[in-house]
Design a protein around this nucleic acid. Structure first.
Lengths: 134, 134
DNA sequence: TCGTTGTCTTAGAATCTTCTAAGGTTAGCT
DNA sequence: AGCTAACCTTAGAAGATTCTAAGACAACGA
């Protein structure tokens, strides 16, 4: 490889595409469990590929491929040290994105929970405290 | 159809899945140009399927399918009025998500722009004002 | 130099998503 | 009832992503 790494080629998003298409591409890249997990792991600082690989329970190939997807889009950047490569998140606002998503999903799941409870226990029958007895 | 619409079945996200998988599913659903556009259109209030269809330049089938994906995951909810169906975004924080994404992408694109300029015009040669001459 | 470790790449199969076309349902009108 | 408009569903083809396996490469140390 004589190209790509770090500051060389336009990070994919650079094409003359409508902004909504660029956003979609960005979300699509975040739309994989392993990649979400990678971002969560990188929340508290950079990590080597090996470390990530261990925590993700993935093999070397899979790990590299997911990291590659994130790096190509400019979400991650990397630093080489000896034989190891350390990855970090380029823009801290990326974590904000994850946080907002968590909030949205949390409310949504809570609403669903409440609804299930509602269905299981006829309305007006419940004591205070919502949760199951035990 | 005797099920599904509005407040009935657990909105997909309810499965006993790890939270990062739910997040990924959520992002994946946002990861399509037409769906990003739908959300942007719904930013200033609810719209009927027909209106969306017109603005998206999609046919009835495609429009319904994308709306279905978003509704099934609980991102949208709908209201029926006569023969029309109006959709709206369930959680306003969804717009915040789009906004943060826009910010991230904007910086990223600006950085890329700067870099291209840098490559085209040797460093230290530029006058103030960044942009191309005319 | 040789072997080892850490990371990346490629190729093809498996899987999932999106698109296209056709038809179905419901509400409202005459 | 019969017709139309608005929306939804389905099925299969087309297209894209992900997974698995194999191997390549570079840095390091013996």
């Amino acid at each position: 490889m004589t190209d790509d790494d770090q500051a060389s080629r336009p990070p994919a998003a650079a094409q003359q595409q409508p902004i909504y298409a660029v956003k979609a591409e960005f979300f699509r890249v975040l739309g994989h469990p392993a990649r979400v997990r990678i971002l969560e792991l990188l929340r508290d600082g950079e990590r080597s590929v090996g470390e990530l690989q261990t925590e993700l329970h993935l093999d070397s190939s899979g790990t590299s491929q997911h990291l590659g997807v994130l790096r190509r889009l400019g979400v991650l950047e990397s630093r080489k040290e000896g034989t190891s490569v350390f990855y970090r998140v380029r823009d801290p606002r990326t974590f904000q994105l994850l946080e907002v998503a968590r909030q949205i999903l949390t409310s949504s799941l809570e609403a669903t929970q409440a609804l299930l409870t509602e269905l299981a226990v006829p309305a007006g029958t419940r004591r205070r405290g919502g949760g199951p007895p035990a």
